[in-house]
Write a protein that binds this DNA or RNA. Structure first.
Lengths: 254, 254
DNA sequence: CAGTGGTCTAGACCACCAC
DNA sequence: TGGTGGTCTAGACCACTGC
């Protein structure tokens, strides 16, 4: 390869080159990249080197590989998740889950992976103070592309006879049902982490092993400050922007 | 290598193995991993394969390479950034910047990279509605390890004659100085994204090219809803947990 | 100067896809 | 069946570290 920038390795320069070509439309979204052997010939480097360059693009979500078929350019419309607004909007629909998607004229879909009684994961049990819980595990789609996994946990004793054990929970979503039980959430907190996906997450979200994901631990508190539900969101990092808004808590001075 | 799990590639299995050994203390934090040729012999694979496994650990921040010296196990105490609380606490110190660090008994330090008049980056200019801005660019450390880059932008016309053009801005931090000017922030918003670091960020934060970073765009609004400052935080993903807390905005709702 | 990781190559075999 | 990417190897040269 004709090395231009001396300070960089070949595979990094190739990654830069490919990235440029994606940016300027030479490789359009949805189309195939030239094959690795092809690029290998064009740039006069070994295929391993090309492959290493492509690996970088995969990690940043710009490209998606389908084995045997080729490497596709991804279109990257970012989804916006406004944490405060989405819960404020919950009385207009069937829950906060699909607010972001429907706003963008995308077709949203929810797939329920599991609804039932389970032993809570350690992190969840510690928050809820309970191991015997109801899980509502689901996968959300926009235009048939998976956009997030969301596992919600509730006290089993509290919810076992109610509508939360069914897929459709009715108007206002799960938080309205908690309100029906007298423990409507009034305060929320979210912890946001980034990490690499586990194997299962990688499969379910159809992302690369090297593509980082957001892990959001969302906790809802009732008026007496007891946590009443925990939801773990796992979302491909390249798909989402998270937004949080708040007022200065200093209104009554220091 | 003695392949145990058939569904996985060797380098993934080796990465799992190394991860286990880090978890269980076989490789303690701060110590050196066995060298790649050594692992190559032990596991009976080529060095390239070992290297590829180590690459995975680097992306998740578990390991840090110093060329010529070796591969070190990182200690990973997560820093907690509570967005709401850190601004509430600003009147106790010299700003929100160091709240998280000092809480953990770590030694905090701020290095000023640049303070002066610049042309605003496009994203910042769009928010502020102004291209002529003051930048306060800094790098923050905990125990001499870089923990984040923070670039703050203010209208140059507004701040050019004030204390914000000096390194030390005094009690209450920059937001107290904006309040002195009659545009004290009363509302905040943050947009959170994840991406791979640029080269400069990689160098300044001393992280791997494959390690994802948080990019937080923090905007402060004055009482008249005008944005008065923008701060871009760039933080290594493996170092931080972000926390946001809010009350149900439905108090007067339907 | 010996040891470390960074990078690159040529060649190979494989699983998977589309035709 | 031919093309695609996934993976692995042996060997090589390099820059950098620490003694």
């Amino acid at each position: 390869m004709t090395v231009i920038k001396p300070g960089k390795s070949q595979y990094q320069q190739i990654a830069d080159l490919l990235q440029e070509r994606i940016q300027d439309g030479t490789y359009a979204p949805g189309t195939l990249l030239p094959s690795e052997p092809e690029l290998s010939r064009e740039l006069d480097v070994s295929r391993v080197t090309v492959n290493k360059a492509v690996t970088l693009l995969r990690a940043s979500g710009q490209v998606k590989v389908r084995r045997g078929a080729g490497t596709f350019v991804r279109s990257l419309p970012k989804l916006n998740r406004d944490a405060v607004a989405r819960f404020a909007a919950r009385n207009q629909g069937t829950g906060a889950g699909q607010v972001e998607i429907s706003k963008l004229n995308l077709q949203s879909r929810t797939e329920y992976l599991h609804i039932g009684r389970v032993e809570a994961p350690a992190a969840v049990a510690e928050i809820l103070g309970e191991r015997d819980v109801l899980i509502r595990s689901r996968r959300l789609f926009a235009n048939d592309e998976p956009t997030q996994l969301a596992d919600s946990y509730y006290s089993w004793a509290l919810t076992k006879d109610g509508p939360l054990t069914a897929a459709e929970v009715g108007k206002g979503g799960s938080y309205a049902r908690l309100a029906d039980l007298g423990v409507g959430p009034v305060r929320f907190s979210e912890d946001v982490n980034v990490r690499m996906p586990y194997d299962i997450e990688r499969d379910r979200l159809e992302i690369e092993a090297s593509a980082p994901i957001f892990e959001i631990t969302h906790v809802a508190y009732a008026a007496d400050d007891r946590p009443v539900s925990v939801t773990i969101h796992v979302m491909p990092g390249h798909l989402w922007t998270l937004r949080y808004t708040w007022d200065d808590p200093q209104e009554s001075g220091q």
